[in-house]
Amino acid sequence: MSIPVRPGDDEPRSPAGAARPSLWLTVLSLTAFVVLIALGVWQVERRTWKLALIDRVEQRVHAPAQPIPAPASWAAVSAASDEYRHVSVSGRFLHDRETLVQAVTEEGPGYWVLTPLQRVDGTQVLINRGFVPSERRDPSTRKDGNPAGQVEVTGLLRITEPKGGFLRDNVPQHNRWYSRDVAAIAAARDLQKVAPFFIDADAGSQVGNGPIGGLTVIRFPNNHLIYALTWFALAFMLAGRLFVTFRGGLFRRTRFVHEAAGGFDASARRTGSDAGTIVEPT
């Protein structure tokens, strides 16, 4: 609607529809925009890190097998520097101290068979020999798969899994295991010099009716690009809303139109000596 202005007015009044956004709402919106952009950038950085991790693990898995770290360096073994390394170790299995850990694999539900390997230097290394179905839980059903004497095992170095599995805690006193917790298994089986990691035996480790090796699942979810695009999209949607709001309020321009008092709609406006400048929004 056109707004009449008297000649004595110093400034024209703002158009009725040009509501100015409040200061706190403006600050909050700009803060949200900055946070959304920061989250998007963070996801881009996470994606770069994840791709580097995947490449590093692929190189480790397919590298020639190397001897496991020496006992003097066991304290320095970590997921970042050692997990999924292709390693080899030799010794004698202590089959009477094996531990069954519940598992679900591509072969179905069953158990991982973790057996200590006694080395000539007196130390032990837990070997995840592989998977057995529930009907072969009893060691007597797979005696031909338990080699005696000196053996050499190749596989992937894995970091211990303490505190149990998802929503399930290990119960050593009842021999119920849901994760491969090296320290807890060592204590339950009275192993004195056990390595702080275990080894997933590869597919060539199976003997007779023994556990099925080579079932290690290596999967790193990489949805960071989707997350980044989502954050950026939200940020630009907010920016568009801010633009519309400010354009209709703080930055809305006005123009001045001079009309003669005798115009076609003069009856709807002031006439005579009161006729003056009409302000209309653009």
Rank of each mutant, 00 (worst) to 15 (best):
T154V: 10
I199S: 08
F166D: 05
L23T: 07
V57A: 15
W177R: 01
I218W: 02
S205P: 09
F93T: 12
I127D: 01
A203F: 04
G155S: 11
A186H: 02
A63P: 15
G165E: 00
R253C: 02
I159D: 06
F33D: 04
H95A: 04
F256S: 07
Q124Y: 06
Y178V: 03
R241L: 06
D274Q: 10
V44L: 05
P64M: 09
T141S: 05
Q43M: 04
F198S: 09
A187D: 07
R129Q: 07
S140L: 03
P162F: 05
A188K: 02
D9V: 13
W49G: 05
R270K: 15
D96R: 10
V125H: 03
P116I: 10
P139A: 03
T154D: 07
F93C: 02
V171Y: 00
I3T: 11
A79V: 11
E280T: 14
Q102D: 00
L53E: 05
S22C: 13
P281L: 11
I199P: 05
L225V: 11
V171N: 01
N146D: 07
G91R: 13
G145L: 03
A266M: 07
Y111H: 07
R129D: 01
F232I: 07
A16E: 15
S179G: 03
A63E: 15
G145P: 03
G248F: 10
T99D: 01
Q118L: 15
D9E: 15
V151T: 13
N128D: 10
V182T: 07
A203M: 08
N222R: 08
S78L: 15
T245A: 09
M237Q: 07
T230P: 00
D82W: 08
R137I: 01
S267P: 11
R241W: 03
L100E: 01
L51D: 09
V151I: 14
Q102C: 00
